[in-house]
């Protein structure tokens, strides 16, 4: 058990955490009856993926990825006068996640608007009640 922790969990703890958070979100999407709670789960689910990407860009002891006039003072420049990439965090995954955050916000916005419309039409946000009312609608036709 201890060996498992040392070999599999500790060096990769970011992956464990992202999967756990993601599963919490997914569970809530599947199991919750209230539409808003489903959306909260969906947000948690998406945020977990952001966490995965952000953790990909991290390097131990690395600095922010801005190369300015003080690059030499911040000892980013190696011996040959070139930038030492080991000392700079990878900015690409972070930038990607800015896009993904925007996508997530837009999705949440659309979803909340839909919830509002569903509430106006059915007077409830509980999924089983909505489905029951739809079934009644269907039987009338």
């Amino acid at each position: 058990m201890e060996a498992f922790f040392k070999e599999a969990v500790v060096p990769h703890f970011n992956f464990w955490i992202y999967v756990i958070i993601m599963m919490i979100g997914l569970w809530s999407v599947i199991a919750k009856n209230n539409l808003i709670k489903k959306l909260i789960g969906l947000s948690i689910f998406q945020t977990a993926i952001l966490l995965l990407y952000v953790s990909l860009g991290v390097k131990e002891g690395a600095s922010i990825p801005i190369i300015d006039h003080h690059a030499a003072e911040r000892s980013l420049v190696g011996d040959a006068g070139a930038i030492n990439p080991d000392l700079i965090a990878n900015p690409v995954p972070h930038v990607l996640m800015l896009t993904a955050i925007v996508v997530g916000v837009a999705t949440l916005g659309v979803a909340l608007a839909l919830c509002q419309m569903i509430y106006k039409d059915f007077g409830t946000l509980e999924e089983d009640e909505v489905l029951q009312k739809i079934k009644a609608l269907h039987d009338d036709v």
Binding site: A111, L114, I118, V130
Partner: peptide
């Protein structure tokens, strides 16, 4: 009324 619920389910699955 039904298209909104259908869109919501699609949204969850699609996301």
């Amino acid at each position: 009324k039904r298209c909104k619920v259908a869109a919501f389910h699609y949204l969850i699955m699609g996301t």
